[in-house]
Measured scan of single mutants.
Amino acid sequence: KWTITVQGEEAIKWAIKVAEARNLDYTVHIDGDQAHITIE
């Protein structure tokens, strides 16, 4: 299990796209213009 933090709307969209493309189980916690994405 690991967490990445991305900043900015484009980076958030990209990170989610990558997680979905790899069929990963993930949760997103949005904090202002940052998102913390935890991959199970």
Rank of each mutant, 00 (worst) to 15 (best):
G8Q: 02
A19Q: 02
Q34N: 09
T3L: 09
K1F: 10
D31V: 13
Q34Y: 15
I39Q: 02
I12N: 01
I4L: 10
Q34V: 15
T27Y: 09
E20D: 09
Y26T: 02
I37E: 00
A35I: 11
L24C: 14
G32E: 03
I37W: 01
A21F: 11
W14F: 08
K1Y: 10
V18Q: 14
H29E: 13
D31W: 09
A11H: 06
E9I: 13
A19T: 05
K1R: 12
H36Y: 13
I30W: 12
I12L: 13
N23R: 09
I12H: 01
L24A: 07
V28N: 01
W2L: 07
I12P: 01
I4P: 00
A11F: 08
G32V: 03
E40Y: 15
K17Q: 13
K1D: 05
I16N: 01
A15S: 03
I16H: 01
A15W: 15
I16A: 01
V18E: 14
V6L: 08
V28M: 09
Y26L: 04
R22A: 15
G32H: 05
W14I: 06
I39L: 10
A11P: 02
K17D: 10
T38W: 06
H36Q: 10
T27H: 09
E40R: 13
A21G: 09
A15N: 02
A35H: 04
T27A: 07
G32A: 05
A11Q: 11
I30Q: 06
E10K: 10
I16L: 10
A15T: 06
I4F: 12
K13R: 14
Q34I: 15
E20A: 06
E9T: 11
E40S: 13
H29D: 09
I12Q: 02
E10L: 11
Q7Y: 14
K13M: 10
L24F: 09
Y26F: 12
W2T: 04
A21Y: 12
A35R: 04
Q34D: 07
T3Q: 07
I12F: 07
W2V: 06
V6C: 06
A15F: 14
K1W: 09
H36W: 14
E9R: 08
T5I: 14
I16E: 03
H36E: 07
V6W: 02
K17I: 11
G32R: 04
K1N: 08
A35D: 01
L24I: 05
A15R: 00
Q34R: 13
T38E: 06
Y26G: 01
T38Q: 05
Y26A: 02
G8N: 03
T38P: 00
A21I: 12
E40N: 14
E40M: 14
T3N: 04
I39V: 07
E10T: 10
A19E: 03
T27R: 07
H36T: 14
V28K: 01
I37V: 06
K1E: 05
T3E: 05
D25E: 14
D25V: 15
D25A: 14
A19Y: 07
E20Y: 03
A21C: 13
D33R: 05
Q34S: 12
A19I: 15
H29A: 10
I37L: 07
I16M: 06
I30R: 11
W14K: 08
L24V: 06
I4T: 02
D25L: 14
K1I: 09
A21H: 10
Y26E: 00
Q7P: 02
K13L: 12
L24Q: 06
V18G: 04
I39H: 02
L24G: 05
W14G: 04
I12T: 04
K1P: 08
H36L: 12
Q7N: 09
A35P: 03
D33P: 06
K13T: 06
L24S: 05
I37S: 01
V18N: 09
K13Q: 12
D33M: 10
A11S: 06
W14H: 09
D31H: 10
D31T: 09
I30V: 11
E10D: 10
D25P: 14
W2I: 07
N23F: 07
L24H: 05
D25S: 14
E9G: 07
T27S: 10
V28G: 01
V6R: 01
T38H: 09
G32T: 03
L24K: 04
W14C: 10
Y26I: 10
R22T: 15
A11W: 12
G8W: 05
H29G: 03
I4G: 01
R22P: 04
W14N: 08
Y26D: 00
D25H: 14
E20N: 07
V6M: 05
A11D: 05
A21S: 12
I39N: 00
D33Q: 09
T5S: 08
Y26S: 01
A21P: 00
G32P: 02
R22Q: 15
R22Y: 15
K13F: 07
D33V: 07
T27I: 11
Y26R: 00
V6A: 04
I4S: 00
K17R: 11
E9W: 14
K13S: 08
T5V: 12
E10Q: 10
E20F: 04
D33W: 07
N23L: 07
T27F: 09
A19F: 14
G8D: 03
V18Y: 15
W14Q: 09
H36R: 11
E10V: 09
L24R: 05
D33S: 09
I37K: 00
T38V: 13
A35F: 12
I12G: 00
N23M: 08
G8F: 05
I30G: 03
K17G: 12
A35Y: 13
D25N: 14
I37M: 05
H36V: 14
I16Y: 02
G8E: 02
T27W: 11
W14S: 06
